[in-house]
């Protein structure tokens, strides 16, 4: 018996018990082997359900469980850190025939991944952004922002934040519109916020360490005050470099 044979049989539902795996009287026992098969499948499905509560709510727990079993067999985790399990789920949802037509699901899954990554990211001083308000305009233009390790940006063509809210707290029925979202973690609980329309490229320039002046010059139509206020008041900034 090799671990390759054992592993293959665990993830293949109808495969026979590997040769040499026996019960107390020396005979092969499917029921005993199935304890491991069941532990592996249910354990990984539970980890997936923990990481994607909004997807589970949107598709229903019964469908989610059936989909999770397929996902676990196709994409077992490649890391032992279960908090990160499911990086491949957005692409899986886009290709899985029963969910293919639900075009918004992959971005909702990406938002859930961003929130989970934010939860475990490194700490920063959530008040660091307050310094922005003390700078005069000339100084502000020369300033660069370092965003927090827990900050995430998700650009979407779907009303991803409204769908996420509706899934988890029964908010209003989402209207079709593109929504890009930032995730920020002032203390321990990550919060998603709507990014002002059309501000994605400006924010990406700041992430890439452009000065505020350079980012404005490159993306002059942005509502700069709204973006900077959002970043400063949500605990998104870890350092104001001026």
């Amino acid at each position: 018996m090799t671990q390759t044979q054992f592993r293959t049989a665990l993830l293949t539902p109808d495969a026979p018990v590997p040769a040499g795996v026996i019960g107390p009287t020396g005979q092969s026992s499917a029921k005993r082997f199935n304890v491991y098969r069941n532990n592996v499948t249910t354990g990984l499905c539970r980890a997936l359900a923990d990481n994607f509560p909004a997807i589970r709510s949107l598709v229903g727990s019964e469908f989610f469980q059936a989909m999770a079993v397929e996902f676990v067999r196709a994409c077992p985790p490649n890391s032992p850190l279960m908090a990160g399990y499911g990086l491949a789920l957005p692409d899986f949802l886009a290709q899985f025939p029963p969910t293919q037509s639900l075009g918004y699901l992959p971005d909702v899954a990406r938002l859930e991944l961003a929130i989970r990554q934010s939860y475990h990211a490194g700490d920063h001083d959530p008040k660091a952004g307050a310094r922005l308000g003390t700078l005069d305009e000339a100084r502000l233009m020369q300033t660069r922002l370092r965003l927090a390790p827990s900050f995430r940006l998700l650009i979407s063509d779907w009303p991803v934040l409204d769908i996420w809210n509706a899934a988890l707290s029964g908010g209003p029925k989402p209207r079709h519109q593109a929504q890009s979202v930032i995730v920020a973690r002032p203390a321990f609980d990550p919060m998603p916020h709507l990014l002002p329309t059309g501000a994605e490229a400006f924010l990406q320039a700041l992430i890439d360490m452009a000065t505020i002046g350079q980012a404005i010059a490159a993306h002059p139509d942005t509502d700069v005050l709204a973006v900077l206020t959002l970043l400063a008041t949500t605990g998104s900034i870890s350092e104001v470099m001026s």
Binding site: L10, P76, N78
Partner: peptide
């Protein structure tokens, strides 16, 4: 863990 897959059980 085997062949890069973590099976989340004590085998």
């Amino acid at each position: 863990t085997h062949d890069g897959a973590f099976l989340n059980d004590l085998l």
